[in-house]
Amino acid sequence: MLTVSMKVNEQAVSGEVEDRTLLVEFLRENLRLTGTHVGCDTSQCGACVVHVDGASVKSCTMLAVQADGCDVTTIEGLTNGAELHPMQQAFKDNHGLQCGFCTPGMVMSAIDIVNRNGSGVDEATVRKELEGNICRCTGYHNIVKAVQAGAKNMGG
């Protein structure tokens, strides 16, 4: 067993993991942060996207020990719980979800898209950059609308 320490949602955490423990397993099973989902487990679907040192990663395709010393943000860390993050609010306002399973990963990827492309990000860019996030309900149309609306809201 290995001891890993990292910052998750601004809080210092540590825990015992196997060498093979995935970051998503550490988040869900050790820390009980179950907002990060496992969909395909083969880095295709994006339900497990979190931010590691500010960049989006698929937490099913990174070992927990590889995040040792890193700064991790999950869907639970976007707000203090009293109100929604502007991107979450935009998904709600634009009906950007149906069953909701893919939503945490969509929102984390969406924020990463805005961080890199700015609040005026165009539709084509959003569609291209969401290639790694799969939704089986919505047909993506309202998700794309939500990301663009959320981008504007994040921009102030």
Partner: peptide, 9 residues
């Protein structure tokens, strides 16, 4: 290559 999250790793 892949998608943004894959390209980050």
């Amino acid at each position: 290559i892949g998608d943004p999250a894959v390209r980050n790793r």
